[in-house]
Amino acid sequence: METNVQRDLSSYIGRVLRDHFGKGPESVFVTLGHTFITCYLRNFLSPMERVLLEQDQIVTILQTRDLLMKNLLPEITAYLKIATGVEIREVYYDWGLHNRSGIIVALTSEPLPHAGEIAEAFTGKEQLHEEIEKISIQVEKIPEEMFSYKLNMRTILVVRNGILVAIEKEFIRLGFSESLRIAKRQLEKGMLHNDLHFESILGTKVVDLFVDWDFGRDKSVIVFIVNPTS
């Protein structure tokens, strides 16, 4: 059942994105689970971005959105804190341009008072971790820690800690964080998207897949949006 907090956050996210991007998402699905907030955006692509996407200018779209989100994140973080009454520790985001979708994920410093139940045990969890480890080691290294949770029937969230290799840390130190982020989106996210095992592991269709990194914390969040299973 949707709470007032979820409706409030859904309305706010839709409005603030429309004000800054010129077009907001058609719908925003907000999930509150333990110390996690996810905002799943559907049909979010401006007319100009549609033209760029048709010309395969994906990097241009991502760079522009990153610039806008840098300005937006402090405002979004402040609003999430006011709406939930809990300190916001980290915020991640990613886009599924091919699906005109997106995700905003916030991690809180303590459990949310309005949160629903989440499942730490779910079908395919161990195999999911093994598959993500296989991909991680091809583009960086095996995570030092990995946690995953099923927030609801459609949302599975994976948190990886300790994934950066020495060369990546040096790029970050030299000020090339944005270039590294774009490269990892192209490479690592592409490998996650092209992995044919996730659907058989989870026993359902993967509708959307998102990934983002916090280089300062050496941390990454992956979100699977799946078809609900009975």
Rank of each mutant, 00 (worst) to 15 (best):
Y79H: 12
I82A: 10
I82K: 15
I82H: 07
I82D: 15
A83I: 04
E87Q: 15
I88W: 02
R89P: 04
R89C: 11
R89N: 14
R89G: 09
V91T: 06
Y92W: 09
D94S: 10
D94C: 02
G96H: 05
L97D: 01
N99I: 15
S101W: 04
G102C: 14
I103Y: 01
I104M: 13
V105S: 00
L107G: 10
T108F: 09
S109Y: 01
S109I: 01
S109P: 00
E110A: 15
P111M: 13
P111H: 14
H114I: 06
G116H: 07
G116S: 01
E117C: 15
E117G: 07
F122I: 13
T123Q: 15
G124W: 10
K125L: 13
E126I: 15
E126H: 14
L128W: 06
E130G: 02
E131P: 08
I132Q: 00
E133Y: 05
E133K: 07
I135R: 00
I135C: 01
S136Q: 10
S136G: 02
Q138F: 03
V139M: 12
E140R: 00
E140Y: 00
E140N: 02
E140D: 04
I142R: 08
I142F: 02
P143Y: 03
E144R: 13
E144T: 03
E145W: 03
E145L: 06
M146Q: 13
F147E: 12
F147C: 11
S148I: 05
Y149P: 12
Y149D: 14
L151P: 00
L151E: 03
L151V: 07
L151S: 06
R154W: 07
R154G: 05
T155W: 07
I156P: 14
L157K: 05
G162Y: 06
G162S: 12
L164V: 02
V165R: 00
V165C: 03
E170S: 10
E170A: 08
I172E: 05
I172V: 14
I172N: 08
G175V: 06
F176S: 10
F176V: 05
S179C: 08
I182Y: 00
A183N: 02
A183I: 01
R185M: 13
L187S: 02
L187N: 07
E188P: 00
K189D: 05
G190Y: 08
N194V: 14
N194R: 10
D195R: 13
L196M: 11
H197T: 14
F198H: 06
F198M: 02
E199K: 05
L202Q: 01
T204N: 09
K205Y: 07
K205R: 11
V206F: 12
V206D: 14
V207D: 13
V207Y: 10
F210W: 10
V211L: 09
